[in-house]
Computed example of a mutant assay.
Amino acid sequence: MRSKSLKWFWLAAALSGVAATPALAQEAVGRAANYEGVTSWPDWSGIWSPGVSAASRTTATPPKLTPEGQKMVDAFNAGKERGENLQTQAANCVPNGMPGIMRLPYPIEFTYSPGRVNILIETYSQVRRVYVDGRPLPEDPDPAFNGHSVGHWEGDTLVVETIGVNPAVSVVPGIHATENTRFVERITRTAPDHLVDEITITDPAIFAEPYVMVQNYKLEPNWEMREYVCQENNRDGADAEGRPVMDLGDPFEGLED
């Protein structure tokens, strides 16, 4: 491999007219070696659609909650009964965050870099970066909508651990992420056109036991990722307190007959 990499390096240098130094040659060999690991990973190329049916986004049962978690959900449900506006800020084009970003009815795509799996998500044109270079999770992460993720391969399964999700993110209805909320995903291609993301959520103060969600994806060979700019043509608004509202009004108001 080394001699082959050097051969191509010197050929490229000769064609470009750039003087090839030993240091540059060694750098080229190092880059080639880095990508050798990438080529051994499972091929998940293509566009994966989560679908829109309830069967594509499954959960076995409602989460089993601690008394503190149940208190949060009870307060949320009581607010709904009173008619309170309890929409999340996603209605104002704020990203859904984990785990919702993986469970919306818009496609995803995987790309690989040395030491990193990138998950491109059409929703909000988001990117999740999963570091598989052996680094640990950060000890004191800055909150982020999708959190901070590290992973490793177990055969053809990508195991992803995520922490540091922004507390504004709704994990399940009525419950927001805390500094102790952790996600473990097991992403596996179970058939040529089928990918499964099993998401396990833990938070000792809220969940009495791990809560598992399953997201299914179908390969769509003829699809392309599209640009998603939520704010463009967004007809949602915010009330005086900044809460999401839905006021479509008259789309033809002000137009001449």
Rank of each mutant, 00 (worst) to 15 (best):
N180D: 08
E198Y: 08
G155E: 06
H152W: 15
T66C: 02
E81A: 12
R182C: 00
S5R: 08
V18R: 15
F207W: 00
W44N: 01
R31Q: 12
L15I: 10
S45L: 10
A191K: 03
L15S: 11
N166Q: 05
S5N: 14
L104Q: 03
W48C: 07
D193H: 13
P167R: 03
M1E: 14
L248R: 14
A238Q: 03
R235F: 15
I119N: 05
E36I: 14
S170R: 13
A32G: 05
V212M: 04
L219S: 09
G83T: 07
E209V: 11
M102K: 09
M1G: 13
A19R: 15
D74W: 04
I163S: 00
R2S: 07
I175C: 06
H152G: 10
V184R: 04
T157M: 11
F9C: 15
K4F: 15
Y124C: 07
Q87D: 13
E241R: 12
V165H: 01
T39D: 13
L104P: 10
A177K: 00
T157K: 12
T200G: 00
S16A: 13
D197V: 13
G83R: 03
F145T: 07
V117S: 04
G97P: 06
H152A: 14
I108A: 03
C93R: 02
L104H: 05
A60V: 11
D239Q: 00
A14R: 13
E122K: 03
E232K: 10
A54E: 12
V172C: 05
R243K: 14
P114G: 06
E253S: 01
R189D: 13
P204L: 02
M98P: 04
A13V: 07
P22M: 05
N216H: 15
F145W: 09
L219G: 09
Y106H: 13
E139G: 13
R243T: 09
S5G: 11
K71I: 11
I187E: 08
W8H: 14
A13W: 10
P99N: 03
G147K: 00
V117I: 06
Y106P: 00
F110W: 07
R182K: 08
V212H: 04
D239K: 02
V245I: 11
V196A: 04
G155R: 01
H176P: 07
E227A: 11
T200P: 02
M213H: 08
D257V: 15
F9L: 12
